[in-house]
Design a binder for these strands. Sequence first.
DNA 1: CCATTAATTGGCA
DNA 2: TGCCAATTAATGG
Length: 223
Amino acid sequence: MILLIHLRPIGWLEGLSRSSLQEIETKGIIKEFHAKESIFLSGEKLKHYYFVIKGSVAIYKQNGEGKKWIASLLTDGDFFPHVGFNQTDPNYPGNAEALSDSVLFVISKQQMNTLFNQYPTIHEHLTLFLTAKNQELITRFSNSVLETASHQLVSLLKRLASQSGEKVDDDWILIEHGMTVQNMAEYIGVTQETVSRILHQLYRDNKAKKVGQKKICVNYRLL
DNA sequence: CCATTAATTGGCA
DNA sequence: TGCCAATTAATGG
C-alpha cells in the first residue's frame, strides 16, 4: 500500500529519512480543522500532541466574561501543547482553536514519548523549541509591561514576517497570518479598535499595506 | 443577492 | 486606551 506522506524532513523532523517519516506518520493521523474550530479545551486530559502541517492555531485563556487572551500562536512546523512530557496525567493548559483552515498531524501522548526515545534528533528539537518559546514569552511579557500597544503590534508583525512571511521584494514581506484584527488584539491584550487604528497608522506611514482581510504586506526595514 | 460577521470610525470618559 | 454606537466592508451561502 502506498502511504501519502504529509510530513516533511524539516523543522522537528529535520534529517530523518523518508522511511522514518513514513513510520512516524503511521503513529498518528492527519486531521483537518476548519477556521474557528476547537481542537481541545483547557483542563481536559492531555491525550494528544499536534504538529501544524499547514494553517494557524491559537492557544488561549478565557475568563467568565468571555474575554480572551491568546497565549501562543502556532504556525506551519510548530508543535503543541508544550507541556506534560513527563507528567503522569497532564491536562491541556488552555483552549486551542484553529484560526484558519488547518491541517494537523495528531499523535497520542504515548506515541510522542516513543518518538522522543526512538529519534534523539526529535528530542533535541523539543529542547530548542521550548527554549525559543520561553524566550518569546519573556519578550512578550516585558513588552506588555514596558512598551506601547503600537510597539507590541509591530513586534508581532515582525515575528510573523520572519517566521512565515514571503519576500515580495527587497523591502516588502507578505504575511498570510490567517488572523483577524480581533485575534491580533487578543494576542497583545488590547481592543480590536486599538489594533485597527494602529494598523491604519502603519498604512498611512507606508510601513505596511493591506492586502486582504487576513493578509498584510510589511516593510521590514521601516518597521 | 441577502444575511451575518468583521472591520473601521467618531465621540466621549 | 477602552467602551459604545453607527457605518462600512467582507464573507458565505
